[in-house]
Design a protein around this nucleic acid. Structure first.
Lengths: 197, 197
DNA sequence: GTCTATACGAGGATAGAC
DNA sequence: GTCTATCCTCGTATAGAC
């Protein structure tokens, strides 16, 4: 509304982030040049530096944004008191959320090694928070005698790896609908945790 | 034995591949320069081109070598006729083999997008062979009524993702021994597939 | 806010000496 | 078989015009 004539700042910024995310996911952070990103957006390379101090920060902000969206979306879900129902909710949430943002997921898992140590540490903290949410569900179910899990930490990591793996092959319009995928994974998750009730 | 005096060809080649694998795993293919690899080995950059036509081929040969070692090692395992025992064998084999070669595993999964299309296709074929071996086990168990798996293809992909995920956190000398990890994962795999008998 | 022009370093790969 | 020297391209980032 208050946009000044000739100013495109409010639209160029998001377009830069979108182009960078797509290109990073496709070719990898190190293989993508600032010139490529600029071309994609339709501006000159120098203009990118009005929106990010450098390439590293651009990458980090994409990854941080993704992880914070993930945590916020998880927090917004209603979590059932029953651990089995809570685990089903987490399973379906994880598959749905990740399937809808495959580029961000890919970048956030693959480009960790290209982050400077300080940025890496911040992102690891966010990732850890997410894992802890799942582990808490497993622990409460274990205490209630509804799960049979020898090691909740290990089980949480195993489940997340399994669920995130969906992204390596799932494509909209493929052999299986997302609802079917969710159902089949929930079947495996439920059984793997020895869920009863 | 027949090594000519002054010739180090038979030792330099493997050292180049080892250094490249380590560096690619650490920093990513695109982020590693031929000069870095040469420095690691203790030769000049130009000398690398006596052992590989270019950087792309060096990457591809590392990945192909890893996948062929994997398939050969799997083929060398004795596969029990009983599907449940075969699945346990596969589970333990996968964890053990991958834990022992974390760099090669990392590179083979992360650098697929940096392969030229022809090389990518060849590697996908090898990966597919490996997945098919697991799916065959699941199918035979399903036919025998010993597994309860709604979709063997999907289950095979889910299990491989879960098992390969071990590599993201397992470190020798950590909280859990590899034998314990194997046992806990086998417990989850067995239950997830609804194994009986 | 975006452009052009450019500084400056590093990249892959090759030629020819030893 | 390895080295030195070099070609040429491309990278990130900045300065200053409009």
């Amino acid at each position: 509304m208050a946009r000044k004539p000739g100013s495109k700042a409010e639209i160029t910024g998001p377009r830069i982030r979108a182009a960078a995310l797509r290109l990073f996911a496709r070719h990898g952070y190190a293989a993508v040049s600032m010139r490529q990103i600029a071309t994609e957006v339709g501006v000159q390379a120098g203009a990118l530096y009005l929106y990010t101090p450098d390439k590293q920060t651009l990458l980090f902000e994409l990854m941080r944004g993704h992880m914070e969206d993930l945590l916020a979306a998880l927090a917004a879900e209603v979590q059932p008191a029953d651990p089995v129902a809570a685990l089903e909710g987490f399973t379906r949430f994880h598959i749905r959320f990740h399937a809808a943002r495959s580029d961000a997921v890919f970048v956030s898992y693959m480009e960790l090694r290209n982050l400077e140590p300080a940025n890496f540490a911040r992102l690891e903290g966010l990732r850890r928070s997410y894992e802890d949410r799942l582990e808490a569900i497993l622990q409460s179910g274990q205490r209630a005698g509804q799960f049979a899990v020898p090691d909740t930490k290990l089980a949480a990591l195993a489940l997340i790896a399994m669920l995130t793996g969906v992204n390596t092959w799932y494509r909209e319009g493929g052999r299986l609908s997302l609802a079917t995928v969710e159902a089949h994974y929930w079947d495996m998750v439920r059984k793997a945790m020895g869920a009863v009730g």
